[in-house]
């Protein structure tokens, strides 16, 4: 589903990704952990084509994302992305937030776009907020709104970039529950996360990023239970504190 080979990415002089090789198969949930600045967000931006790459290849669903003849806008329709900041469109109601992209990007008739939007909002448990504005929602609700907005494009995979780290602790649970629900439904996902418990429980595999390379990747029991890399051991002991 997602095949990354020999990926290099720099911002000007700063080399951030230094040779990433990674395959994510259909229906797999991969969590990405690692310390701040190790390049986790950058990886997601590259997969999504929001950042150009210097070397290597990213294939998503048989399309080479960074090939010059690739239409990034249509690639992105197959890939939902949820950011740390929920970025709800403040001038639109909850329902319109979700219906906007189906209407203008997928060019669906308005009624159909609204129908899809309503379905996805119920899916994430916001069925009773349709006509509210985002400013009337809690952070957790806005993050679920962002998830619904991405799902409304009926993506084949989802990328989560620390979807819960800007939330108050008591709101983290509801968002994780929503992501868990998607995992159970078989959505292919890459989740950058600081929630080790979540990574352990939901993921099929966990990748540990360190200074722009995948230092260790394994099933959660092994990766958390018997970390091989010294950096990972250090990282985990710091997180546990």
């Amino acid at each position: 589903m997602i095949k990354i080979s020999n990926l290099y990415k720099s911002y000007d002089d700063l080399e951030v990704l230094k040779g990433i090789n990674l395959n994510v198969s259909k229906g797999e949930v991969l969590s990405v952990i690692g310390s701040s600045g190790s390049g986790k967000s950058t990886l997601l931006y590259c997969i999504n084509g929001l950042e150009p790459i210097q070397q290597g290849q990213i294939i998503v669903d048989d399309i080479d994302v960074h090939a010059s003849d690739t239409n990034l806008n249509s690639v992105r329709q197959n890939m939902g992305m949820v950011f740390q900041q929920w970025n709800s469109f403040p001038h639109l109601t909850v329902l319109e937030n979700v219906a906007l992209a189906p209407r203008i990007v997928s060019k669906l008739p308005k009624a159909q776009a609204l129908e899809i939007a309503e379905k996805q909002l119920r899916h994430v448990g916001l069925g009773d907020k349709l006509s509210k504005y985002p400013s009337a929602l809690s952070g957790g609700q806005q993050q679920r709104l962002a998830i619904a907005r991405a799902l409304a494009m009926e993506p084949k995979c989802m990328l989560f970039d620390e979807a819960t780290s800007a939330l108050d602790p008591e709101l983290v649970g509801e968002v994780l529950d929503t992501i868990r629900l998607l995992a159970e439904e078989g959505m292919t996902m890459i989740c950058v996360t600081h929630e080790m418990g979540f990574a352990r429980e939901v993921s099929d595999r966990v990748a540990f990023f360190h200074e722009g390379v995948i230092e260790e990747i394994n099933q959660p029991e092994e990766l958390f239970g018997a970390p091989k890399s010294v950096y990972l051991q250090k990282f985990l002991s710091k997180v546990k504190k």
Binding site: S74, F83, M153
Partner: peptide, 11 residues
């Protein structure tokens, strides 16, 4: 960030 979110939806 807001604009990236919009672009990530395929706009």
């Amino acid at each position: 960030p807001m604009r990236r979110a919009a672009r990530s939806l395929g706009m």
